[in-house]
Design a binder for these strands. Sequence first.
DNA 1: CTGAAAGCGCTTACAG
DNA 2: CTGAAAGCGCTTACAG
Lengths: 328, 328
Amino acid sequence: MTMSDVARLAGVSTATVSRVVNGRYGVSASTVAHVRAAIERLGYESSLVATSLRRSRTNVLGLVTHSFQSYTAEVLKGVMDALSQSGFDLIIYANSDLYGTYSEGWEQRHLARLAGTLTDGCIVVTPSGEVRSGTPVVAIDPAMGSTVPAVTADNLAGATAVVEHLLALGHRRIGFIAGRSSLEAAWSREEGYRRALAAAGIAADPALIARGDFNAESAAPLARELLERPDRPTAIFAANDGMALKTLEVARELGLSVPGDLSVAGFDNIPESALGEPGLTTVDQSMYRLGHEAARMLKSLVCGDWEGPGRIVLPTRLVTRGSTAAAP
Amino acid sequence: MTMSDVARLAGVSTATVSRVVNGRYGVSASTVAHVRAAIERLGYESSLVATSLRRSRTNVLGLVTHSFQSYTAEVLKGVMDALSQSGFDLIIYANSDLYGTYSEGWEQRHLARLAGTLTDGCIVVTPSGEVRSGTPVVAIDPAMGSTVPAVTADNLAGATAVVEHLLALGHRRIGFIAGRSSLEAAWSREEGYRRALAAAGIAADPALIARGDFNAESAAPLARELLERPDRPTAIFAANDGMALKTLEVARELGLSVPGDLSVAGFDNIPESALGEPGLTTVDQSMYRLGHEAARMLKSLVCGDWEGPGRIVLPTRLVTRGSTAAAP
DNA sequence: CTGAAAGCGCTTACAG
DNA sequence: CTGAAAGCGCTTACAG
């Protein structure tokens, strides 16, 4: 069912049907009526693909992500609200080959496949590397060293605050489980950890710094190693909640009580962090706002009227729960 | 940056570039090498739009949804896992005009704009009406009376179980807040309520049945009205958790203690239902599994090898928490 | 093994 | 006011 079918039924050319579909001026009222009737009768809808191939502007924005965690839903809500009534629709592209041969750099590949033809611009969530495109791009949590317009939480301040919190509770040996080092957020959170320690006159002990990758699973062996040391830390700060919750699990397995023997803190404030017993002390970053700001920025970039900076940094907030207490 | 650019740089025709990009046989090794080099140098990626316009099969499946609640994330996880390594990518289309003039029937419109050109088939989440398409469609929670292939939870059994639970606790006046009547799930949950009452020899009191629309907000005035009756119910079953949680709020405002004065139960088991104090008694339906089964079904339908029934019904499970107790 | 040409479903100058 | 034609970026018979 294409435009030709409509044209045939209405007895006009496809050019005329196109004009009616797009509400262009210069079509007689009676022709419009005929064409509308034909469209109605056939239930015709124009092909998004054909339209966007032909037009330079599509009024569709893209979002490329590699997973659907619960935080992704928050990001999407923020994006949708920002786009509501804006005239832009949203296409989310997800590839099914996440663990396959092409997993590295796939954001860039999908971006290139959408940009210019399907989308007027794209949001990329936690890209694994620098992204380039002929159309505007906004990264949510960009890669380390990336220069694309981006939105992030104030990871440095958040990490500093949570470590200061642990220090104020009397902890002196504080372990750290780092995130995927290709992401700027991982670096900033580590930097916050280091600065807070330095400000308190404590030298960071390399033996207490473990290298995770933000996946909860990666934290299990790392937490175990940290906690089985004879001089184990009295507190562990994991670079995100997933890894912190896993640390809580490992502590339980090892028979350590939290927060009696060990304090644990995370970052993100995902819903699950409030669920457990004890609740997880963490740093709240509003994924909703990240999504909202990214969409707002992208929209302006596409329209060419963006006045703000190339980088938006949103405030974070320390959330203290039962998993942290005075050092033993 | 198009295929022509690559062709020019490699000194061949676009036909040859296309053959190399798609790994077709019949291109000399040296030509392949040249073209590969040119692709590499330019960072070329083929346009998804142009490719799918030309090809009949795109290996892209679509998903059309009207919102991104937390359950949507669960559905998407299930879909992605089912599609992992399947060779199908996923496109999610969300329109920004949710509250605008075209909101009614927009699933059908977007479906038509994607189907046939961009996607080989689509999943539609809680469609507001019957959906039709030239390519396979699977509905998650179809509209009432819809005949498209669909996946749902066993809403009837789940609702029956939760009302039986309330009856077993001694409740005799049980209020019900219904969902959006255009959805089959709303109807089945109401039917479960009626059947459980009937089986217990209790006539359903029309005054205790309120008509909500699944949005939490819609439940506030309804719950208030039910609870301000002189002969108020001792228990309320809301057709989903959002409305049940809102009912909890209203009860609190009215100074009623839950579960002392009033028992409340919901349906869905969204994460928030476990968070409050008291936790919400509800019926678990795995949104992950709904998504997973829908994707599996769609994939087979597209490949033409679907052997199962046109309707998949997944089991539900009663989850009792603090919000229900013996009738006062 | 390679290229010229047609065509996927649209839109848009250009004529008339 | 309307249509024939070109072209968006690809793929695929068809020739050679």
